[in-house]
């Protein structure tokens, strides 16, 4: 459970980073229109940081979460 959760946090974190970077933030490429100025979803950059945070927080979860087997 603990491992699953932290692993899924890592996966989710990276996924969030990838999605927000490539899909939700302002488009990549040579900007030729106003569309390149705005993120497709507002605060997508915040999501990216949340993604980074999730990956690191996975370690916290991994360490801090009580092990069910132990109890």
């Amino acid at each position: 459970m603990r491992k699953t959760l932290s692993l899924s946090m890592v996966v989710l974190g990276f996924a969030l980073q990838a999605i927000s970077y490539f899909a939700l933030a302002a488009p990549l490429g040579t900007p030729t229109s106003p569309a390149y100025a705005d993120p497709r979803l507002p605060f997508a950059p915040l999501l990216f940081i949340v993604g980074v945070a999730l990956v690191f927080l996975a370690a916290v979860v991994y360490e801090l979460m009580p092990d069910k087997n132990a109890k």
């Binding site: 990549l28 900007p31 605060f43 950059p45 940081i49 980074v52 690191f56 370690a59």
Partner: peptide
């Protein structure tokens, strides 16, 4: 505005999100 609009196309995106915020979070953890 950085949290709201930051453009991955700008090298500043890396500086502000990865190099500073992400890295800071990682280091704190």
């Amino acid at each position: 505005n950085l949290l709201k609009y930051a453009r991955p196309g700008s090298p500043f995106f890396g500086t502000l999100t990865i190099a500073i915020l992400g890295f800071l979070f990682g280091a704190l953890v």
